[in-house]
Design a protein around this nucleic acid. Structure first.
Length: 992
RNA sequence: GCGGAUGUGGCGUAAUUGGUAGCCGCGCCAGACUUAGGAUCUGGUGCCGCGAGGCGUGGGGGUUCGAGUCCCUUCAUCCGCACCA
């Protein structure tokens, strides 16, 4: 009987579904293991071959852990709120829920074909009200919490209110945007509105006027991680800065803990580093510079009716510019102070003389888009304000400049410029001819700034002679002593903007009463997404939810990362109606042991979910501070686009992409000279009716490795079997016609003149996407070779973490392996398995394989395990081995990789239960001993031999072993070894 | 600029972690079977050389009896962050 993967795979997929083979239960005396995949966004394009890569890896691991005696949780679901469904809805009027539903159905069908061992009873969908009820619930908890920096955790807002009523806010240490201090008496006298406005400055999710990334094309704001190079990550639309009233998440409260937590988890260094950069901790000090003459420069008087304390007496009030620096040691090198153009003091400081120039500069900076600003960071611009500050130690006047190299949002929006020891300050000083004052010896200031943190301080009064590190300490000490500033840690991380002006997202459960934002009471949840007539913003620019009838709630919705920040807990208890998951379930499953997914979420999902998890941890709702113990980032599978060029090699024009209906590997070819191959021409004419097109045949046939982006030496070509016939409509290759298609997938048929019929193609590797027309579907592989082949092949392609282009070149090799395995059982055409005792060699093959597979799985080296299976089956085929004692353990070992064929053969061996419930075989090291001395190496007059020995052998056993073997080995030339000395590993010194 | 990776046959890769470099697969070559081959089976295949032999893990240096693996240096490619004071 042939290996009929189609029926085998269908049958077993049905069996698994019918029997709920992979159902995970909480009652078990086995240890738990949670294997999680990053759930997909169900897009209209369906799965491509890149999606299952990580799922296959996690499935192998999950199945392996089950066989190893773990109680495994391995769920799957859908991140089903998102922009594409909404865009589609805007274009077609189709409700996004319907599109999403259809896409999910399609995804499910595709996933089922691959034979994953998911427990589908636990499926979650973030757009399902039963699910987003709890996303909203978490939002409410965040709203009702503040961050206590004394206890270093989130606490209920009631504790804060009580403290305010009792002592005011002077003693409260919190992560807050509240700037003013009030007493208990004042607090109690505040109106409700005033109190709520203050509380808003403490809440972990809060409404505030903030600079946001506004994307006009998408009509919504975006979080920092959704903006790349000044354009939106989705769609590539320009993004601008805009001041808006927005919901935000106070993730900055957790900055330090998010940083510290990285030390405790097993993630790749690159992701951890990306998060560290994103959080961007820097330690330094704040420092106040007194403005010379206070605000006497102020030359326009604002008569304020609200304020009655402004009497503009002749005495100028003291005004300070506060800066943040990591190099307080260079305080004596300050040659100017630079403010961001948006800095609040700019207006007040500027003197009459410079007012016009400053105003112009501020306007210029404001109109320069974020993108421009990023694009030409080298461009130096700035303006003197006319004002001076006083150096805190020398009392010298220091000019105050504004410049857009200083960012308003970081630190205090002002820097002390030490032009000698900071690259940007240096460039600024050179450009505007400002003084450069050396205070750390060691650099060549004629050429460039010296910003290394080593060297001795000079020209620095009390710091002179100190090393930089000591000088920093001393400077901070003195600055603090003189109350000029304070040691301080700054983070680059900003609070995350949470509201989106879109329809297809979780409604924010907030309503407004007398201008006060109030959260919905928990028993009213979920706040269900209302119906709207159109999915566009209203005419007044309100978000789509403003169109809903009788909608009295917040009109922005939550961002995509809301639902995905906690979904891994919902899987633990996905049907729960009363809690986001029961405490019992959470305490049983604890956390995710293995998380597999792409690295593109490094500063998005993977940071936000750590944040939410820490918050839930603070509330005592989850037991672990970090949600994902081990993270593996699978590489991307890239698509290969075959691009067609026309014209000469050196001056050519892209006319389209080449589409092959089947999986033919097309090398780049250069169709220039015309060659004919009679045989193929005949075939072509017989099979293709538009014979006149064949007039334009350009023929080329080339051994593939001879083509290397260069014009070919055609004189060497005589292999007509592999000829390529290029016509203006397409090309013939191996007796099939392949049409050229343009960028949009349309055939390229026009625009090609008689004289310009030279085509050539090049492969370009790029990200797989529907818009690039290079998507490869896993379905085709499943249909043609089966799911087991797809699984093995995706693993075989290379190391999991590496990005690699998709090609099907090697798939027959992997498929052949399965057929070969099948033939071990069906050598005579019928199922025959022997019950004989296996030979020593057969046992060695088996145990070697088990050992390697275990090692491979444990270090996630799935590609090598496929090779090891092939070696094993090759050896067993050579030995004509069909013994049960060998094949049965082999099938269990293989089951995680190729579950369908393993199940089928397992059943035919007479087993009643699914192979899922078998026990993974242990290997026996003693079968792996080899009796031969392999080769000699000379060392210090002695002879060393490489031996393959069992790791468990004692020194005595090795010595006896070597002595017994020695005389049979030619390397000893008949001499008897006198002494055997064992050095580390498998090397043995034999003194002759 | 800072940070993270990666460099091994024609290609994807492997190497028991310091021990005979190139396992396994693709491709290619030869043969068998076949109406045919994008099927199957057998053998060969790092490079140079008829050969003995020599050379080989991006380049250069070092440690070592021994280096793809460790150290120094340099080059190339990819990814992330980027005027963060």
């Amino acid at each position: 009987m042939e290996y009929n993967f189609k029926t085998i795979e269908q049958d077993w997929q049905k069996y698994w579904a019918d029997n709920k083979t992979f159902k995970a239960e909480e009652k078990s005396n086995k240890p738990k293991y949670y294997v999680l995949d990053m759930f997909p966004y169900p897009s209209g394009a369906g799965l491509h071959v890149g999606h299952p890569l990580g799922y296959i890896a996690s499935d192998i691991y999950a199945r392996y852990k089950r066989l190893k005696g773990f109680n495994v949780l391995h769920p799957m679901g859908y991140d089903s709120f998102g922009l594409p469904a909404e865009q589609y809805a805007i274009q077609t009027g189709q409700h996004p829920a319907i599109t999403t539903q259809q896409n999910i159905a399609r995804y499910r069908e595709q996933l089922d074909k691959i034979g994953f061992s998911f427990d589908w009873d636990r499926e979650v969908r973030t757009s399902n009200p039963d699910y987003y009820k709890w996303t909203q619930w978490i939002f409410i908890q965040l709203f009702n919490s503040w961050y206590n920096t004394n206890t270093n955790k989130a606490e209920k807002i009631e504790t804060l209110v009580a403290e305010f009523a009792k002592n005011g806010n002077a003693q409260v240490k919190a992560c807050t945007s509240q700037e003013t201090i009030f007493s208990a008496t004042e607090w109690n006298a505040f109106s409700e509105k005033e109190q709520q406005d203050i509380l808003m400055n403490y809440r972990l999710t809060y409404l505030s006027e903030a600079w946001v990334n506004w994307c006009p094309a998408l009509g919504t704001v975006l979080a920092n991680d959704e903006v790349k190079d000044g354009v939106s990550e989705r769609g590539g639309h320009p993004v601008e800065r805009k001041l808006m009233k927005q919901w935000s998440m106070r993730i900055t409260a957790y900055a330090q803990r998010l940083l510290d937590g990285l030390e405790t988890i097993d993630w790749t260094e690159s992701i951890k580093e990306a998060q560290r950069n994103w959080i961007g901790r820097s330690v330094g000090t704040s420092l106040k510079f007194k403005v010379q003459g206070g605000l006497k420069h102020r030359n326009f008087l604002v008569i304020s009716s609200e304020s009655n304390t402004n009497d503009f007496s002749e005495e100028p009030e003291d005004v300070y510019i506060e800066v943040f620096t990591t190099r307080p040691d260079t305080i004596f090198g300050v040659s100017f102070v630079t403010l961001a153009p948006e800095h609040e003091l700019v207006n007040e400081l500027t003197t009459n003389e410079y007012k016009q120039a400053v105003d112009e500069y501020v306007l210029y900076a404001k109109n320069r888009s974020e993108r421009e600003r990023q694009a030409d960071v080298k461009k130096i611009t700035g303006q003197f304000t006319g004002a001076y500050v006083v150096h805190p130690f020398t009392n010298e006047p220091i000019p105050v400049w504004i410049g857009d190299y200083v960012l308003a949002g970081y630190g205090t929006g002002a820097v002390m410029a030490v032009s000698a020891h900071d690259t940007r300050d240096y460039a600024f000083a050179k450009y505007f001819n400002l003084p450069i004052k050396e205070v750390v010896a060691g650099g060549d200031l004629e050429k460039e700034a010296y910003d290394a943190k080593e060297g001795k301080l000079v020209n620095s009064d009390f710091l002179n002679g100190l090393e930089v590190k000591e000088a920093i300490k001393k400077a901070i000490a003195i600055i603090e002593e003189k109350s000029l500033g304070k040691g301080k840690t700054n983070f680059r991380l900003r609070d995350a903007v949470f509201g989106r002006q879109r329809y297809w997202g979780e409604p924010i459960p907030v309503y407004f009463e007398n201008g006060i934002a109030k959260v919905l009471s928990e028993d009213k949840l979920p706040l269900v997404l209302p119906e709207v007539d159109k999915y566009l913003p209203t005419e007044d620019g309100e978000p789509p939810l403003a169109r809903a009838k009788d909608w009295t709630f917040e009109t922005t919705t939550m961002p995509g990362w809301a639902g995905s920040s906690w979904y891994f807990y919902r899987y633990m208890n996905s049907q729960n109606k009363n809690e986001f998951a029961s405490q019992q379930s959470i305490n049983y499953w604890q956390d995710v042991d293995l998380y597999i997914g792409g690295s593109e979420h490094a500063t998005g999902h993977l940071l936000y979910s750590r944040f939410w998890n820490k918050f839930l941890f603070d509330l005592g709702l989850v037991p672990k501070e970090e949600p994902f113990k081990k993270l593996i980032n699978q590489g991307m599978i890239l698509g290969t686009s075959e691009k067609i060029y026309r014209g000469n090699y050196n001056s050519s024009q892209l006319v389209g992409k080449l589409f092959c209906e089947k999986d033919i590997y097309m090398p780049g070819f250069f169709a220039k000279n015309i060659y004919y191959s009679a045989k193929n021409i005949e075939f072509a004419k017989a099979n293709y009716t538009k014979i006149d097109e064949l007039e334009h045949l350009s023929v080329l046939n080339v051994p593939i490795q001879n083509v290397k982006n260069s014009v070919l030496d055609i004189s060497k070509i005589d292999d007509y079997q592999n000829s390529i016939f290029a016509t203006k409509y397409g090309f013939w290759y191996k007796n099939e016609f392949h049409i050229y298609k343009g960028i949009n997938g349309e055939p390229v048929i026009d625009n090609i003149s008689e004289t310009d019929k030279n085509f050539y193609t090049f492969q370009e590797v790029e990200k797989m996407s529907k818009s690039k027309w290079n998507v490869e579907s896993p379905d085709d592989i499943c249909d043609k070779f089966g799911a087991d082949t797809l699984r093995l092949y995706e693993m075989f392609l290379g190391p999991l973490e590496l990005s690699k282009p998709w090609n099907t070149n090697g798939i027959t090799g992997v498929h052949g392996f399965l057929k070969k395995l099948w033939r071990l059982f069906y050598a005579s055409g019928e199922f025959v398995v022997s019950n004989d005792e296996p030979t020593k060699a057969e046992l060695k093959t088996l145990h070697k394989t088990i050992k390697k597979i275990v090692e491979d799985i444990e270090r996630f080296s799935f590609n090598t395990s496929v090779s090891n299976f092939m070696i094993c089956v090759n050896e067993l085929t050579d030995a004509k081995c069909n013994k049960r004692a060998i094949l049965e353990p082999l099938l269990i070992t293989l089951a995680p990789y190729a579950p369908h064929i393993a199940e089928e053969l397992w059943k035919q061996l007479g087993n009643k239960e699914s192979i899922t419930f078998a026990t993974f075989p242990a290997f026996n090291e003693s079968y792996l001993v080899d009796d031969t001395i392999n080769y000699p190496v000379s060392f210090n007059g002695k002879t060393r031999f490489m031996l393959e020995l069992a790791a468990t052998m004692t020194a005595k056993e090795i010595e006896d072993h070597v002595m017994a073997l020695a005389d049979t080995q030619k390397y000893l030339e008949g001499k008897t070894p006198k002494k055997v000395i064992i050095v580390p590993k498998k090397i043995v010194n034999i003194v002759v």
